[in-house]
Simulated scan of single mutants.
Amino acid sequence: MSDSRATSFGAEADNYEAARPDYPFEAVAWMLERLPDGARRLVDVGAGTGKLTRVVAEARDAEVVAVDPDAVMLAKLRDHVPGVPTFVGTAEALPLPDASVDAVVLGQAWHWVDPVAASAEIGRVMRPGGTLGLIWNARDNRVDWVRRLTAIMNASAAEEMLDAGGPTVATPFGEPEAERWEWLRPMTREQLHRMAASRSHLITASEAERDSIRKDMDDLFDELGLEGDATIDVPYVTWAFRALRG
């Protein structure tokens, strides 16, 4: 995770928790459905504020551990998902023993890692037959106003990776399987602004650029008639991938 944007999110941890969408339970359950019944430990890497951690805990009866490079994000996670052990670390350097976990999942995070180094390190801590699960919530840019919003905010590294064909996974994992879910999320103007504020491009942008993006967003929302507490349905696509350790 050498890109400074990858570790910028703690500056907007509250907006990240409030405005980023939750993961559909069905998608998370699908990522983990090939685990054996006796799976004992699951790890959420790049766990952030716990958006994925809490769904994993609901989907499987096993110990869940959270790892993130940002201690500020982990502090928020402990507030929202109490009782989950947290550790500072990255996908390329996990603070876990060899062959100690049954699954590792990453939500909105694999695009920040070195896929070869991360695959090898996750393979080190995972028992044979375990699952690597990768998941992203992405706005559906096939819808005109959503495509215009994305152009204003700038496409994310995740969107660019998904558009290019999806994630790369290396040894000791096999070729990943993929599935997708489409759904709608009602959002207010304020929620859309908070979502934008939680994105790495805005966090690391100059104040002038942030002001320009906010103004262009407001112009679009005015055109859409999105005022006050009114909501607009934001179309999302959840992409999930799972790969088994050899």
Rank of each mutant, 00 (worst) to 15 (best):
L96R: 08
V143E: 12
W30L: 10
G246A: 15
R148C: 00
D218F: 08
A178R: 15
T204A: 01
L52S: 07
E227M: 09
D70V: 09
L132A: 09
D219K: 13
L192V: 03
D61V: 11
G165P: 03
T171E: 15
S200E: 08
M1I: 14
A118T: 09
T168N: 10
A66G: 07
P97F: 00
D70R: 08
M73I: 07
I232D: 01
L192A: 02
G38N: 15
V101F: 01
F9S: 02
E209G: 02
M1C: 14
P24C: 08
R210G: 05
A59I: 01
A243P: 09
F173L: 00
N15Y: 11
A164K: 05
A230M: 08
S4E: 14
A19D: 09
R245N: 06
A62M: 00
T188S: 08
L149Q: 02
A11Q: 15
E26K: 11
T168A: 14
V67I: 15
E179I: 10
L77Q: 09
W239T: 12
F9A: 04
L244Y: 14
D70A: 06
R78W: 03
V45C: 10
L202Q: 08
G165V: 01
E159H: 02
Y23L: 07
L106S: 12
V65P: 02
G107T: 00
E175S: 14
D3Y: 04
R199P: 01
V45M: 09
L32Q: 06
L52N: 08
R78E: 15
L134K: 10
Q108T: 04
V143P: 07
D70C: 10
D229T: 03
G83V: 02
L96H: 04
R60K: 06
N154A: 14
N15W: 11
R124G: 04
V88K: 12
M126H: 05
A19F: 07
H111C: 01
K51D: 03
P21W: 06
A208R: 13
P85N: 11
L244T: 15
L52D: 06
W136A: 04
V56S: 03
R40H: 07
L96N: 01
H111S: 02
V72F: 09
M195E: 14
D216S: 13
A99I: 09
D218I: 13
E159C: 00
A71H: 13
L226F: 01
E92F: 11
A230G: 05
A230L: 06
E12M: 15
T90L: 13
A27V: 12
V28M: 05
P186M: 12
A157K: 12
P172L: 00
R148G: 00
I152A: 01
G165E: 00
A39W: 04
F241V: 12
E121I: 03
T168D: 13
A230Y: 02
G228W: 00
T49F: 05
E190L: 10
E92G: 13
D68L: 11
M73W: 11
L42E: 00
T188C: 03
E223N: 03
P82L: 11
A243L: 06
R34Y: 13
